[in-house]
Simulated scan of single mutants.
Amino acid sequence: PPIWTAFDGTWLAEAIDGNQQARQTSTFRRMRDRIFVAYLRYRLRAEWHRIEQVLERQGSTGAG
């Protein structure tokens, strides 16, 4: 699709590597990220539950 023509895979790989490096070298960063993930799990649990329900319905009907 045309949207992927502006996608910079090199930049993304460098950004991921930089984030991983920061987590490896910083206890604060690891703690901050764990807290953020816990918050997201709490905040988005209802949405994930709805997604699971839709997928279960699709699986039982053979659709999807």
Rank of each mutant, 00 (worst) to 15 (best):
V37L: 10
T27H: 12
Q20M: 12
A63R: 14
A46S: 12
T5E: 07
R50E: 12
A46V: 07
G62K: 05
R30H: 04
F7L: 15
V37K: 03
T5D: 08
E14D: 12
I51Q: 11
A13N: 08
G18A: 15
L12C: 07
W4E: 08
G64M: 13
T27F: 07
R34Y: 04
R30T: 11
V54I: 13
W48A: 11
Y39C: 07
T5I: 01
A15M: 11
D8P: 03
L44I: 00
N19S: 13
T25I: 09
T5M: 02
R45Y: 03
R29Q: 14
G9C: 05
L44S: 09
F36G: 06
A46H: 06
E52S: 09
Q58P: 01
L12N: 07
T10R: 09
T5L: 00
Y39S: 11
A63E: 15
N19Q: 15
Y39P: 00
E47W: 06
T27R: 12
T61R: 15
E52H: 08
G59V: 00
V37D: 03
Q58M: 13
L40Q: 14
D8Y: 02
G9M: 09
I16R: 08
W4N: 01
R30W: 01
F36T: 09
W48G: 09
W11L: 14
G18E: 11
Q53F: 02
T25Y: 07
A13Y: 01
Q21L: 12
I35E: 13
Q53W: 05
Q21S: 14
Q53C: 04
V54T: 04
D17M: 06
V37G: 00
G59F: 01
S60K: 13
P2H: 02
T10F: 01
R29C: 01
T25Q: 15
P1F: 02
D17I: 04
T10Y: 04
R30N: 06
E14I: 06
A63M: 13
L55F: 05
Q58T: 03
E47H: 06
G62C: 10
R43V: 04
I35C: 11
P1T: 06
R45S: 15
Q58E: 11
I16N: 04
I35F: 15
F7C: 05
R32T: 08
R45M: 03
M31L: 13
A46I: 01
V54M: 07
A15Y: 10
E56A: 10
G18I: 03
R29K: 10
F36M: 05
G62T: 00
A38S: 14
Y39R: 13
L40R: 14
Q21K: 14
N19R: 12
R57D: 14
A15H: 05
Q20F: 12
G9F: 12
Q53I: 08
F28H: 05
R45A: 08
I35Y: 11
E47N: 09
P2F: 02
Q21M: 12
T5V: 02
R23I: 11
R50Y: 04
D33H: 10
E56V: 00
T61Y: 05
T25K: 14
A6P: 00
Q58L: 14
T25S: 15
S26Y: 01
L55Y: 01
W4L: 14
A6L: 12
E52V: 02
R45C: 05
W48T: 07
E47L: 11
W11I: 07
A6N: 06
L40F: 05
Q24P: 02
